[in-house]
Write a protein that binds this DNA or RNA. Structure first.
Lengths: 340, 340
DNA sequence: CTGAAAGCGCTTACAG
DNA sequence: CTGAAAGCGCTTACAG
C-alpha cells in the first residue's frame, strides 16, 4: 500500500517555509511574496501535492463541499446536471457531493438535513422538482445553508438559472398554429413542479393571442413519464373531435403520445403532429424524430454552481441575469395541417 | 446560521462516558456493556447526532468513502448504477463519492489518481468501460487501492458482479433462430469493452450450434450509441442479400437500427426483426417496443459495493458467486420469419 | 509578508 | 469493559 500521500507539512518542509505560508499559496490567498509563492508551488509539484478534501471539510467555516440532490424520472436530465455541476464545481475549487433522493419519500426533509450535516455542505443546488418543495427550502433557511435552484421561479425571492419556460412553450404552440393547426392539445407535466405551470401558461397564452379557444378536454394530466404520455395520448385520440396536434411538455411524454398514435395506426406527422420539450436523447431515438425545445441543462447546472459559489464568497445573493437561451428544434414529428 | 452540529464530545458528555466509549457505540464496535451502549444511543438521539463524514475520512486508516467513476453513453445505465451504489453504500455505513470521467481523456489515469488521493478513497467501483482499462487497474494496484469492476471478466483475477453476457446473447440469438430466421446480423458494441466481446461470442456460438454460417458482412461495428446503430442499420439494410433479423448489442443501437429500417419504409417486425440488449427505458419508448435482454444494473451495482466493503473488512478478495440473472424480454420488434 | 500555536471532530494505540 | 492522551492534516485567530 504505497499511498504517496504528500501532506502540506511536507510541502512546507521542502519549500523551507511554515505550514501557514504553504497553506496560503495552496489556497491562493494574498500576502505572499512572489518568490516565496513560486518556491512553494515548485515544492507542490515536486511531491505532487493535492489538498485532501476531508481535512479541509472537517475544519473551519467552509468545507468547500457543494451538494447536488436530484429526483427526476428523466435520466439524461440527471446526467447532464451531474456533468455540468462536476465541471463547474471543480473549476471553482470545490467538490461535489451527490445524492439521489425521492420526492415522494416522507423522510425527504430528514434526508436532506442529514446530508447537509453529515457532509458539512457549504451549499446545495436544487434542481426541479426539489426546488419547488417548501418544506425543503424552509429547513435549509433554518439551517442557514445557502442554496440555488434550477428552473423557473415560482417564488420571487429565489433567483435561478432557467430558460423562459413560458415563452418557450408559447413559441412551440405558435409554431404549431403557423402550421395551420387549430385543434392543439397539451399534456401537462408533474404536479407541483414550476415548469409544469409555466409551460401550460405559455401554451394558453399562444392560443389566446391567436384567438383560438382553450378547450379543457384538450388539456390532460401527465407527470413527465413515458407512461403518462401514453395514457394522455390514448385519452386525447379517443376524443370524438380529436386534436390534430399534441404538444407534450417533455420528450418522454411526447414519445408516449407517439406510441399511442401508432397503436391506433395513425401516421405521425401526417395524421397527427406531436411536439415535445427538452431535446433529450429520446427526441432523436424515436421515429419520426421529435420537434422539441432545446434546453441547455448542463449550462444551467454550471450557472447554478457558480451562482452558489459567488453567494458563498460574497455572503449575499447575487442578482445576476439568470435566463439562458432556449431553441426551437424542428424535426419530423410535426407538419402542416392537411386539408380535409 | 443555526447549525445544530452535535459532536461526539457532546454525546459523550450527555451520556456521561468518555469520548472513546461514545465512539465505540457509534462505530458499533464490541466491548461495550449493554447498559452503557443503551445510554450512549439514547444520548445520540437526544442531540440527534450524525457522525461527520469529513473527520472520519481525515483520520485513521479508513475513510469510509467509496468512489464510483463512470463514463457511459447510456444515461439510464449511469442513473441505475448511482441509485444502487448509493443505497448499498449507505446500508454498509459508507459514503459514496461520484465522478464522471471520460475514457477517451488522455488524463484519465491522472484524474483517477487525483480522485483517490484527494478524497482518500477506501475503494472504488469501476463500471464498464473503465474496468477494462489496464492503465487504470495498474495504477490502482500500485496504490493498493481496492476496486471491484462490473460486467463480464476479461481478466480472471478480478471477480465482478455480472450477468453471463455470452449466454444472454446466445439466448437472444437462439430466440431469433427459433422464429425461423437464418440471416441474422449483429451490431457490435464499443471496442475494448468486455461486454462487446462476450455478446459477440454468444451470437457466434448460437449460430454455430444451430449450424448456421457466420457471415462477416453481417457483423458490423458500433459503439453503443444510437448514432452508431443508425449507421450499422443503414449498412446492413443496403446489402444485396440483407438480413431478416438484426440483433444490436444494446437498446440504443437497436433504436438506431429501427430508425434506419423506418427510413427505408420497412416495417418492424414484418419486414425486419430487431432485438436489443439491456432493457433500458429506451426499449419501451420506441415503437414497436423492443425485444431485449434485461440486466439488473442497480442490483449489480449494489453487489459491487458490498463485495468491495467485505474486501475492505476482510482484507482479502472474497470469492463469492457473482453471476446475476438475466431475462429475455419478448416484445413487439421481433416476429416469425414470413414465408416469401 | 511570514510564522508559532491552538484548534477542528474524530480516531488510533495504549494503559488500566 | 472503559478512558486519558496523542495524533490526523488541515485551518483559524493572532502576533510580529
Amino acid at each position: 500500500m504505497i499511498r504517496n500521500k504528500s501532506t502540506l507539512a511536507l510541502v512546507a518542509e521542502v519549500a523551507g517555509v511554515s505550514l501557514k505560508t504553504a497553506s496560503r499559496v495552496v489556497r491562493k490567498e494574498p500576502n505572499v511574496r512572489e518568490e516565496t509563492r513560486r518556491r512553494v508551488e515548485h515544492a507542490m509539484n515536486e511531491v505532487s501535492y493535492r489538498p485532501g478534501v476531508a481535512p479541509r471539510a472537517s475544519v473551519g467555516a467552509r468545507s468547500f463541499l457543494i451538494g447536488l440532490v436530484f429526483d427526476n424520472p428523466n435520466s439524461s436530465y440527471v446526467v447532464d446536471l451531474l456533468r455540468g455541476a462536476t465541471e463547474q464545481t471543480r473549476a471553482e475549487g470545490y467538490n461535489l457531493v451527490v445524492e439521489p433522493i425521492r420526492t415522494d419519500d416522507v423522510n425527504i426533509v430528514v434526508n436532506i438535513k442529514r446530508l447537509v450535516i453529515q457532509s458539512n455542505l457549504d451549499g446545495i443546488v436544487l434542481p426541479p422538482p426539489i426546488c419547488d418543495l417548501d418544506d425543503v427550502l424552509s429547513i435549509l433557511d433554518e439551517f442557514g445553508t445557502p442554496y440555488v435552484g434550477i428552473g423557473p421561479n415560482n417564488n420571487v425571492l429565489v433567483n435561478r438559472p432557467s430558460i423562459d419556460d413560458e415563452a418557450a412553450a408559447a413559441a412551440m404552440t405558435d409554431y404549431l398554429i403557423q402550421l395551420g393547426h387549430t385543434d392543439i392539445a397539451f399534456v401537462k407535466g408533474r404536479a407541483r413542479t414550476s415548469t409544469t405551470g409555466q409551460r401550460l401558461k405559455g401554451y394558453e397564452r399562444a392560443l389566446r393571442n391567436s384567438g383560438l379557444c382553450r378547450r379543457s378536454d384538450f388539456i390532460v394530466d401527465g407527470d413527465y413519464t413515458f407512461k403518462s404520455g401514453l395514457h394522455a395520448g390514448e385519452q386525447l385520440l379517443r376524443l370524438n373531435s380529436a386534436p390534430t396536434a399534441i404538444f407534450a411538455s417533455n420528450d418522454e411524454m411526447a414519445a408516449g403520445v407517439m406510441t399511442a398514435a401508432m397503436k391506433r395506426n395513425l401516421i405521425v406527422p401526417d395524421d397527427i403532429s406531436v411536439a415535445g420539450f427538452d431535446d433529450s436523447p429520446t427526441a432523436t431515438m424515436i421515429w419520426p424524430q421529435l420537434t422539441t425545445v432545446r434546453q441547455p441543462i448542463d449550462e444551467m447546472s454550471k450557472i447554478a454552481v457558480s451562482m452558489l459559489v459567488s453567494q458563498l464568497r460574497d455572503r449575499e445573493v447575487a442578482s445576476r441575469e439568470t435566463k439562458v437561451e432556449y431553441q426551437l428544434i424542428v424535426r419530423d414529428s410535426t407538419s402542416s395541417l392537411k386539408q380535409s
